[in-house]
């Protein structure tokens, strides 16, 4: 596994030292991603999914942020501890990012073209003219016609979907080996979301890039990702290939999430609700972070040391009771819901 891993993250801990205490935003996260793979990271707000990925690009302000431990090996370089110069050679070049909000991540004062070809001018030995031509081609690849003219436009002249296309073109212009996409479609309509997902998939096929896809929408995960990490309170609590995650949940939190969304549950019946609220990660936690909200929790869940255990082939879970074989979370049958039944099925 380690051999063909493109990125290997081990025991990443990103804490924020604030006046209100130490916020353990990411608390011991380990994962790897192979070439060409699409890895989904799902979790609710505050689960640490974005901070984990920002850490990989060292986009965490330090202070108050600090990497308390861990390393992130990308082709022999530790992204967390390498020199700034080394990092700059990788970031925006072999490793790029698409941010959630295309409205605020483009510079409003710069023409689209200037922003788009900046990575090329920095990382590649190309002339301005060549870079400009590549920029026009990149816009065409993401479905923006009339590139010559559009290169000279400003971000405010673009719609939200178009801006997100520009962001994607910019992230992919250096043909990165790894692309991190942080909720790239959350601000967009579903029809535009479908266009953007299609586009990322197409570019991924052409370039063979690996993609880390951060989202809170488990619907997107099911259509888009090979493997999924579920995060809760700064930790990974379950990881599995996508189908297994849905059909054989091995953590009560994952199971609860699926019982809570209307798309997977019968109309007219009440949805399952997870009692309480996610824990405050600035307070120390003992045992399983989900235990206070978990219907299966027992005394030992709080008193034991919780790890991410192998519970099935390729499937790891941080639930002690699943690991001990005491509970089986596989749904007896999925209610026939078809939240949005599919009129276009072939």
């Amino acid at each position: 596994m380690a051999g063909d891993a493109l990125l290997q993250v081990e025991d990443l801990r990103t804490y924020f030292h604030t006046r209100g205490g130490v916020v353990r935003a990411v608390d011991g996260v380990s994962f790897d991603i192979r070439k060409g793979e699409t890895l989904g990271i799902v979790g609710e707000s505050g689960s640490g999914k974005s901070v984990a990925c920002y850490s990989l690009l060292r986009l965490i302000p330090q202070p108050p942020g600090r990497f308390e431990s861990g390393r992130a090996m990308f082709d022999g370089t530790d992204l967390l501890h390498c020199s700034d110069e080394e990092l700059r050679k990788i970031r925006g070049n072999r490793l790029s990012m698409i941010f959630q909000d295309p409205m605020t991540s483009l510079n409003p004062y710069m023409r689209i073209g200037e922003q788009l070809i900046e990575p090329l001018l920095l990382h590649r030995d190309v002339s301005r003219d060549d870079a400009w031509q590549q920029g026009v081609a990149a816009l065409r690849d993401v479905g923006i016609q009339d590139g010559e003219k559009r290169m000279r436009s400003y971000p405010h002249e673009f719609s939200g979907g178009m801006r997100q296309r520009v962001m994607i073109a910019m992230a992919l212009i250096t043909r990165p080996e790894l692309l991190i996409a942080d909720e790239p479609t959350t601000a967009l309509d579903v029809t535009v979301q479908a266009q953007i997902l299609e586009l990322i998939r197409k570019m991924q096929c052409e370039l063979g890039s690996a993609v880390i896809f951060i989202t809170h929408d488990i619907g997107i995960v099911s259509s888009f990702c090979d493997r999924v990490l579920v995060m809760y309170a700064g930790r990974i609590i379950e990881t599995a290939p996508t189908a297994q995650l849905f059909y054989e949940p091995k953590h009560p939190y994952n199971q609860a999430l699926q019982r809570a969304i209307p798309a997977l549950n019968a109309k007219g019946r009440d949805l399952y609700t997870i009692p309480g609220a996610p824990p405050d990660v600035s307070k120390p936690m003992r045992g399983c972070p989900f235990a206070p909200r978990c219907e299966y929790a027992q005394e030992k869940c709080v008193t034991s040391k919780i790890e991410l255990w192998d519970v099935a082939p390729n499937h790891r879970s941080a639930c002690l009771r699943v690991k001990l074989g005491e509970i089986d979370l596989t749904p007896a049958e999925r209610p026939d819901t078809s939240a949005v039944e599919d009129p276009v099925r072939a």
Binding site: S159, G161, M162, V190, T191, V192, Q193, A194, Q195, L197, E198, D217, I218, G219, I220, V221, S222, S223, F224, T242, A243, F246, Y247, Q258, I261, A263, L264, R334, S338, A339, V340, D342, P343, V344, R345, A346
Partner: peptide
Amino acid sequence: ALVSAVPIPDPKRESQRKRIVLAGD
């Protein structure tokens, strides 16, 4: 098109779907 653009949280059904991707905004 609107209905087909919504991803379904069910990998098997999702893999069998055909998606209508609308052009433009």
